[in-house]
Write a protein that binds this DNA or RNA. Structure first.
Lengths: 135, 135
DNA sequence: CTAAAACCTGACGTTGACGTCAGAGGCAAG
DNA sequence: CTTGCCTCTGACGTCAACGTCAGGTTTTAG
């Protein structure tokens, strides 16, 4: 299929697909006239790329990890990289869960009519005091 | 305290603090000569701002929600805003958890010597097929 | 065959949260 | 007083993941 159809199927823009190619995340066959031509499997790959982007990985990191998926091999570097990213995501989940709980607390306190919302000042700061943000 | 000390205490840059003021997230008294002067409580507030940033809120959103914390009042708008942000964070957590599980799967498969890593292609794409990314 | 739609490359624009630099003033120590 | 560090405003730079536009070629529909 050509780029327009892949864009429609995977729900990303044509520009994004060309960007992915530029970043070496997605390769395409070229027709005689230079037009990109993708196999069916490209749609899944684009979904994968999107998933990894939404998990906060950079295109460079994704480019470094995708060969593991493609070649179905893993070097010690790729494994430690995977583990590092997993840990980062785990920490991110934990931080988000804390913030969500804080939001829940303030929502609960403001939904009942006669209460203020002195929330995170009491809860979150204490929890935050023992860790640092993502670099 | 002055801006340098607050920066050191809260672990953010001086530039960031001035930026927060520009975005109306953080106010400062001014000395006769124009230098910013902060109360002790500013350190906690900076932590709060950082927490909300790391949860993916924009400075504009934070600026709209902070008055609720300060004035300890909530309007219907601020309440629905809080709920919307909570839901967004919840969805983000769920998406991250899926991706983390996928990473776990591939790590497990690559750690044992004789296996490939055809992971997300089997697991994640199916899971992703029923939802959309954050806009 | 022709016009429209899709595609190409190249390049500049956008957004957010700052970094960085320039030039000028302020402030405690010796 | 002057040295040296801190602070001020203002303004341009950065980085990622694209958006958008220009100007030209290719494919498709009628």
């Amino acid at each position: 299929m050509r780029i327009g159809e892949l864009a429609a199927r995977s729900g990303v823009s044509v520009r994004a697909l060309r960007y992915y190619e530029e970043q070496e995340l997605l390769e395409a066959d070229r027709s005689e006239s230079g037009q990109r031509h993708y196999p069916e499997s490209a749609a899944d790959r684009v979904q994968l790329i999107q998933t990894l982007y939404s998990a906060g990985l950079s295109s460079r990191t994704i480019a470094e990890l995708l060969p593991c998926v493609d070649a179905k091999v893993s070097t010690p570097e790729s494994r430690s990289r995977l583990a590092a990213e997993r840990d980062r995501i785990d920490a991110q989940i934990a931080a988000l869960a804390r913030t969500r709980d804080n939001l829940d607390a303030v929502i609960a306190s403001t939904e009942s009519p006669a209460s203020g919302c002195a929330w995170i000042a009491d809860r979150d700061v204490a929890a935050q005091a023992s860790h640092s943000a993502t670099p």
